[in-house]
């Protein structure tokens, strides 16, 4: 699996209230949530984002609430992958559980800039920055996580487990 697109770059400690403010949590409709994604720090995000684009951020991305609405909003906005130095743990598991691939890579997080065109190979963990002609290597997914990815998220994993 591969992802390819232009980069939206954010800083440290991007919390779930930034990703999707609580005032919009009275719905679970992914399309509706996507419209408000990042609006408090980047009000044009939804207008500018195109299918396949990639978010790159620094440390502790997704901290705060357990709301799955956060990765759901990001995914529904068209984002194909998130790369950060580190993630808050609930966001980390939520993303895999709903099928939004996310990678940890300090070098990529530091060097990639807003607007860069990059591509990501999930099998190898290789991140190619076309704009800068640089390659960064992310940690490959742990084996257990790979199982969840292969089952197309936790829903598929549990379906298999329940034998449905």
């Amino acid at each position: 699996m591969k992802a390819e697109g232009k980069v939206f770059k954010y800083g440290n400690d991007i919390d779930t209230d930034i990703i999707i403010p609580a005032r919009h949590l009275n719905t679970t409709d992914p399309k509706e949530l996507a419209k408000y994604c990042m609006e408090d720090i980047d009000k044009d995000f939804y207008k500018e984002v195109e299918d396949g684009d990639i978010i790159v951020a620094l440390k502790n991305f997704g901290c705060g609430s357990s709301r799955e609405h956060a990765p759901i909003a990001i995914k529904a906005a068209g984002i194909s992958c998130v790369i950060a130095k580190s993630y808050a743990r609930i966001f980390y598991r939520n993303s895999f559980n709903i099928g939004l691939p996310i990678l940890e890579c300090e070098e990529a997080a530091n060097k990639i800039e807003a607007g860069d065109e990059i591509s990501v190979d999930f099998e190898t963990g290789e991140i190619f920055n076309k704009t800068k002609n640089e390659i960064y290597r992310a940690e490959p997914f742990p084996q257990f996580i790979q199982q969840i990815i292969n089952s197309d998220g936790l829903v598929g994993y549990v379906r298999n487990k329940l034998g449905r």
């Binding site: 357990s66 709301r67 799955e68 990765p71 609930i90 598991r93 939520n94 559980n97 709903i98 998220g153 936790l154 829903v155 994993y157 549990v158 487990k161 329940l162």
Partner: peptide, 14 residues
Amino acid sequence: TGIGSTDMAAGMAT
């Protein structure tokens, strides 16, 4: 520990 909704679903199911 806090988890997300899909984890909650899996927890309720299994």
